[in-house]
Amino acid sequence: MIPSKFDYVRPNSVDEAVAALKAGGEDSKVITGGQSMLPLLRLRLAAPSVLVDCARIDEMKGIKDNGDSVTIGAASTHWDVLNNEIVKTHVKLLADATATVADPQVRHRGTFGGALAHGDPAGDLPAVVVALDATFEIAGAKGRRQVTAKDFFVDYFTTAVGPDEILVSVTIPKLGKGWGTCYEKFNRSANGWAIVGVAAAVKVEGGKITEARIGLTNCASVPVRASSVESALKGVSASATEIESASQSAADGTRATSDLGADKEYREHLMRVLTARAVSCAAGA
């Protein structure tokens, strides 16, 4: 199918992009890789008046090592992210999860920031940035602001990025020594969306888990942390049985829905099973 008509601008800087968004009014939209946007346009489920193409804004590209954290430009493609040495070394969880996003063609074009700003709870990356307590830099007419991962995701397909704002970059703290990570994704067919995904980062010291961070994909209207499992894991030995037992509360605090892919009960069951698997894998159990 063919999209409805729209205008197109390609600003060279974030400031120009913000101005273009404002000029375009409330039906203007940011596009970078367009891998979420294009299907919506083609099915005419979205009909923006103006597309503001931010894919070529230098400030929104590139990946920087800040010492204790890594900053990723929002217009970096998935491909850039998963092949980046800084990411592979310091934010391996993100590289691993990114490798499961869609398929190679989509990873070549789709962007890290686009996937986050799209706010799809079934996307793989939101759970990762939530688990890793990332910080988001958003630019608008009133300047820049920083938003934490917890506040970034608001509801289905709704984030803290306002209609006249742009996600510029995301900064992810490094985990440091003793941490292991794993992204466990479960889907019905290989190129399908995650029914449930679990992003786990676990710190093991002396055979015991001292800290765990777990983000859940597609378990609520936004990516959520499995907080009660995180608490339950503290101090348990890094063994499959103990991890399995601690993972039984994985569905606490989630708001799983039923859809064609899975009903609530099965989703909650998968949260427990996959959390145990992800944590075991991250902990080397």
Binding site: P39, S189, A190, N191, G192, L260
Partner: peptide, 16 residues
């Protein structure tokens, strides 16, 4: 029809 696209009607791909 709830399975009205290739996103919902699961034609297997190579890894399947």
């Amino acid at each position: 029809l709830l399975t009205a696209s290739f996103a919902d009607y699961l034609v297997p791909s190579a890894p399947d």
